[in-house]
Design a protein around this nucleic acid. Structure first.
Lengths: 366, 366
DNA sequence: CTGTTAGCGCCTTCAA
DNA sequence: TTGAAGGCGCTAACAG
């Protein structure tokens, strides 16, 4: 519990001088500064953040609101955020909404953020009107990841382009009987990502004159387990698709698993493609549309820091990171017709990638 | 930026009365309290944590130090911690050590924790001597998860028992040619989990008179990708094990993947077993030793809160959660001899579980 | 039961 | 270049 006064005493100067010397601002004679630094180091002095915040009004904490912290995507984004923030001495205040309804959310976010955070990064969840009010009232800088919100800068991928890329690839392989995993959950109906991906799938199918069959649409909950359950029913029926496009890799894992449990070969009988390039997608040999998840977190952190440093960041700043197709073994052209369901010759392996991204729509100097 | 003074003015009382009324302590007349509450609600008043900390010396923040928080295990533990803490109005300060060497760690933890946290929960990483000094000097309550540290309470599973359970099961199936994935990484040589699991594997093998072959030992980095790489080499050689015991599910995923890439059937040619019951283990049909990861976080949080609430918690408190064997499709008895590597009759499916845990060695009333 | 008065540790004028 | 003094918003004695 050494205080600035202890350092001042040890260095034989006033507390004001210690404050100046330690922060490296203002004019302090090199000699004095050195003495102060030595005394501070000697006493293991670190300024009390509480006292500093009280007077400065800033906390060096950034609230991060996430729907499910323990899921790969969110944990990885937060890793990126944390890396970006830490370099500038900022830290993350975690605010996990998992298990909370909209009713119970506000007190949490309010408690977490009020005077405890200098800014907020919101991952994928749309803010409730009350939360928007709160944030606006506090004049709190906000950056969103994964979806656009009017008035706040954002970092994301183009969900429609990503899904279009996946669907086009499936169609390009010759598939016409294509199922879909990952419709829009009703409980979080404002989420853009599920909606956009679903929309893009339907648009691309329509543009090729292909039919989107409701019974081939898995209304699952965006988890591997949920997708597996639904896909298991799908593959239990007689008429089945030759390809399933999943809105996320984890759902694709579930679909692959269900197919194999039903004795179907992937990709011999069913091709599967996802979006993400999840950390396990390589070993599971999943064809996917890769996004750089950690980079989204880093960029969001950088935007937040820029704002906090007083750099002007347009509220309409919309950073769209590119995605690329990664072709692996879970996709192949459809079997000629009723060809025996034996593993044919291995599909051309290796990872061929195709890039397609709008890149960064605006460039932020940070 | 409404302050306590604004509320006092609005309610026509003094700031002290507002403070008392809002915290529900001390004697305040019901009538006055009501007026104050109304005024506070009206003004959206929330007490400044900085000011409160400054005077109380407590922050209601708990530092969580983790080696890699984007990995499933750590993210899940942290979810548990966060849930436990939030109920009492505490929050998590994330401190991710990923990418940091021991040299650069101290400043980070110091910055994060000094006067910013009321306690620290350390996941799996052993503290450096300097860090221990710092924590001791601050008199900071500490709880560890995943490993024992002298002088600090801990929550964990019995790593040796878990690995023994996995190995015994493999041997019980009739396997004698058993490989191992997940040796002790040299870069983090103090970690108990890798060491204990490795040790238990060798002990059980020895107790059955079985040979541990160095060339069947995958010295991988505890990731699925790393294990896949090493296993791919292993399965490329002529003489291979009929079973691989992995020290974690993610490594087991890698081993299964490599086996299949080499044209080997799992479990027909190679059985694979892991430890964790990772969120993806069910769909990947992996036999494993299940641990309740989120519960470890919740318990650690509860211990921390108990300490902070002044309940006496013994420094030797060592909470050992039970584990259970979950039998799935990745394991089977070894093929008779050089039996053709075709999938035999499906192994008895469904999830049979066997529980074995020391349970909680001490009970904490919280 | 309620108001007044000191600080908590630090930063920031303002003088010297 | 340095020091003295005031105040950030709140809680914890004390009086009343």
């Amino acid at each position: 519990m050494t205080t600035i006064g202890d350092v001042a005493k040890a260095a034989g100067v006033s507390v004001a001088t210690v404050s100046r010397a330690l922060r490296g601002v203002d004019r302090v004679s090199p000699h004095t500064r050195e003495r102060v630094m030595a005394a501070a180091a000697d006493l293991h002095y670190v300024a009390s953040p509480a006292a500093t915040s009280l007077v400065s009004g800033r906390t060096r904490g950034i609230g991060v609101i996430t729907p499910y912290f323990s899921r790969w995507f969110f944990a990885t984004v937060i890793t990126g955020i944390e890396k970006a923030l830490r370099e500038e001495g900022y830290h993350v205040l975690l605010c996990d909404l998992e298990g909370h309804t909209f009713d119970t959310r506000l007190p949490i976010t309010q408690n977490m953020l009020w005077k405890r955070a200098d800014g907020v990064i919101i991952l994928n969840v749309p803010p409730e009107p009350d939360e928007r009010d709160l944030l606006d009232r506090l004049g709190m800088p906000v950056v969103t990841v994964g979806n656009r919100q009017p008035g706040w800068p954002s970092v994301r991928i183009d969900d429609q382009a990503a899904m279009a890329m996946a669907t086009e690839y499936a169609i390009g392989l010759g598939h016409t009987r294509i199922g879909y995993a990952g419709t829009v959950p009703t409980s979080v109906s404002h989420l853009q990502t599920p909606f956009d991906r679903r929309q893009a799938f339907m648009d691309v199918m329509a543009s090729h004159g292909l039919e989107v069959r409701p019974e081939w649409t898995l209304r699952c909950d965006w988890t591997a387990d949920g997708a597996a359950e639904h896909a298991n029913r799908l593959f239990g029926g007689g008429d089945r698709p030759t390809c399933v496009v999943a809105a996320s890799d984890e759902m694709a894992f579930g679909v692959m698993s269900a197919a194999r449990h039903r004795g179907l070969d992937v990709p011999g009988d069913v091709s599967v493609i996802g979006i993400d390039d999840h950390v396990h997608s390589r070993i599971l040999d999943l064809t996917t549309v890769r996004q750089d998840v950690e980079a989204q977190g880093r960029h969001a952190g950088a935007i937040m820091l820029a704002t906090l440093h007083g750099h002007e960041v347009s509220p309409s700043h919309d950073e769209v990171l590119g995605v690329e197709l990664v072709v692996r073994g879970s996709t192949a052209p459809p079997a000629a017709d009723k060809a025996p369901a034996t593993p044919g010759p291995a599909p051309a392996k290796g990872v061929k990638t195709r890039t397609r991204g709008r890149g960064v729509s605006e460039t932020l100097a940070v």
